[in-house]
């Protein structure tokens, strides 16, 4: 108990022996991991490995059958739904399918959390514009989500997630199915969030090149774009990788470790 609550307060996210099954299907089987403050963990795994489920568990949107989950020092698994809303406001999530409110405009979508907090109107306007400028979509203010392309929706979802400066960001496949130019733009946004605002993050992705790009680059404030990490910097504590297989952690380590792993499964996964 004491060790758990200690690590629970010092880490951004702690999973302790978490298990979950849907009907007969075991999705997570005694999963444990920790995310440090300011660090980014890349979740890898084949389709159906349980990556999205981990993000939903983190927010308390889904409850585990067993195990405990701590987020920002609070035990999510011991909280009631009504108590969770407060904690969720300190986190941001970008859903796999964006999940924008389809009968609200881009502006209303991005402003959602500020409207909820009854922030003064002029401030909302300013911050919405700022967030949309961050994702380079300030011209879409009055469009409905259905009028946007998939990549634009993804970026609006990012703007909606970051507008209240969350302490943890959960990205679910933010670059899936996008062209290389758009996905580089999005990865740059993620790096900016990591290196400028020092937000902790879980990043689910199928595109390894994106994950490696994030592990080998740093966002430079001066040049306002990403630049390669200077040689000799210890970057491993900030970026690490986790591969899920059969509901368990199959591999956990740094970018270099995963790239140089000689495990059969990892090699196959990397070359696919």
């Amino acid at each position: 108990m004491s060790t758990a609550s200690q690590s629970g307060t010092e880490k951004a996210i702690v999973f302790e022996n978490v298990s979950l099954r849907f009907d007969e299907q075991v999705v997570l089987d005694g999963l444990s991991f920790e995310l440090d403050h300011g660090a980014t963990k890349v979740l890898l795994g084949v389709a159906g490995a349980g990556k999205t489920t981990i993000l939903k568990l983190t927010l308390g949107l889904v409850r585990p059958d067993n195990g405990r989950i701590f987020v920002l020092g609070q035990e999510v698994t011991a909280m009631r739904e009504t108590e969770l809303f407060e904690l969720r406001r300190r986190l941001g999530i970008v859903f796999q399918e964006s999940a924008l409110f389809d009968s609200q405009t881009v502006e209303e979508n991005v402003a959602f959390r500020l409207l909820e907090e009854r922030v003064p109107e002029h401030e909302i306007e300013r911050r919405v514009l700022e967030a949309l400028r961050f994702v380079e979509l300030e011209q879409t203010l009055n469009l409905l989500p259905a009028e946007l392309s998939g990549g634009m929706r993804r970026r609006v979802a990012i703007a909606r997630a970051i507008i209240s400066n969350p302490e943890i960001l959960l990205y679910d496949s933010p670059t899936a199915g996008l062209d290389p130019v758009t996905s580089t733009t999005i990865m740059e946004l993620l790096m900016k969030q990591r290196d400028v605002y020092h937000t902790s993050a879980l990043l689910v992705t199928h595109r390894l090149q994106d994950a490696f790009m994030m592990a080998t680059h740093v966002f430079s404030r001066e040049q306002n774009k990403m630049v390669p990490v200077p040689p000799g910097t210890d970057w491993d504590s900030k970026m690490n990788f986790m591969v899920l297989k059969d509901g368990k952690i199959f591999f956990e380590g740094s970018a270099a470790e995963i790239a140089n792993s000689d495990d059969q499964y990892i090699r196959e996964y990397l070359t696919l």
Partner: peptide, 18 residues
């Protein structure tokens, strides 16, 4: 129902709104 199956309900919960 549409909001539910398109995850908009989950999105709302995730944004801290009941």
């Amino acid at each position: 129902g549409s909001m539910r199956v398109t995850e908009q309900i989950d999105a709302m919960r995730a944004l801290g709104t009941d």
